[in-house]
Structures are given as C-alpha cells and as structure tokens.
Computed example of a mutant assay.
Amino acid sequence: MSVFLVQHGLSLPKLEGPEKGLSEKGREETLKIAEVAAGYGVKISQIFHSGKKRAEQTALIMAETLCPGLAPEQMADISPMDDVTGLGNRLNPSSNHMVVGHLPYMEKLVAYLTTGREAPKVLKFQNSGIVCLDQDDSGWFIRWTLNPNIS
C-alpha cells in the first residue's frame, strides 16, 4: 500500500491553449508511464487532481489505464503555490491514492513528507512521472519513481 504523486503531463504552450491542456507529447508520455505502472501491477483506489485542465487530463489517462471505471475527483488546496502541510498531514500510506498536481507544490510535498520541511528539494519531478511514497516506523520514504526521461 502506498501513495502516488504525479506531476501533470507536458502541457500546450499558453498561446496554443490558454487553459493549458496536455500537448500530444504530454498525452503520449502519460499513457506510456501509466501502461508501465500497470505492467508492474500498480493498484490505485482513488485519483485526485487539482482541477486545472492539464492535471485533470493526466488523472483521466491514469485512471483509464490503472483503474478503469474509476472517476478522478478534484481536490482543493493542491495548486502550485498552496501550503503542503494540510495534505501532507492527511495522507494515509495504506490508501493507494494518487494525487496529480503541479510544481512547485509536488516537490515541496515530497520534501515535507520525507524531511518535515518543504526545502531543500529532495526529488526533481518530471512531467507525467510517478513518485511512490510509503511509510514505516521511521516515517515517510520514497519507495520508487517512474519517469518518462531516464537520461
């Protein structure tokens, strides 16, 4: 059982898509990562997203691949500049929840969970990348990451 954090897929440039939905490359990379995660047997019980178009589209691709029939839900207070302590203190490692959000929020959340502070950064997210976190007696730790660019 774990918690999965995802940075939304690569979005369109602001001029092409004022609402900044996913680019074609963003859709492709998100689907590729979701398929790899499914191949490894990743199980998700619920997916949450920020409500921004690019995060919602990423969450939908993850849901269709990892848990068909499950509808992602919008979650408040996970926008790029929101305080991470609220969600950080509510996360349950046995939930198998996935949260799709934005930078710098996601990087600050991982730092807060693993060190108790939002800085310094302990992990560099990639668009469409998944970070799996778990908890033991000593606290939260990064179990694994799955990213589209490994070089």
Rank of each mutant, 00 (worst) to 15 (best):
I47M: 08
A59Q: 05
A119R: 13
L123N: 09
A119K: 08
K25V: 11
G139E: 05
S138E: 13
G26A: 09
V84F: 07
R27S: 03
G51W: 03
G21Q: 01
G129Q: 10
S79Y: 10
A71G: 03
V6L: 08
E73N: 06
Y40G: 15
L12A: 13
L87V: 01
T30G: 10
D77S: 14
G101M: 00
K32Y: 00
D83N: 15
V110I: 04
V131K: 02
I150G: 12
E107M: 08
V36M: 06
N147H: 14
F48K: 07
C132Q: 15
G129M: 09
K20S: 09
L146N: 11
G88S: 06
K108D: 03
T85L: 11
G139Q: 03
G69S: 10
H8M: 03
L22H: 06
K43P: 05
P93A: 11
L5Q: 08
E73K: 15
W144Q: 12
N96P: 03
A111I: 02
E64S: 11
S2Q: 02
P18M: 06
V36F: 12
F141D: 00
E24G: 13
S50T: 04
E56K: 11
Y112N: 00
M62W: 04
G139A: 10
A63T: 07
N149T: 13
A55K: 02
N147E: 07
M98L: 14
T30R: 08
I78T: 08
E73R: 14
R117K: 15
V131S: 10
E16L: 14
K108I: 01
H97G: 03
L10R: 14
E29K: 09
L31E: 15
H49D: 08
A38S: 13
A59R: 03
I61N: 04
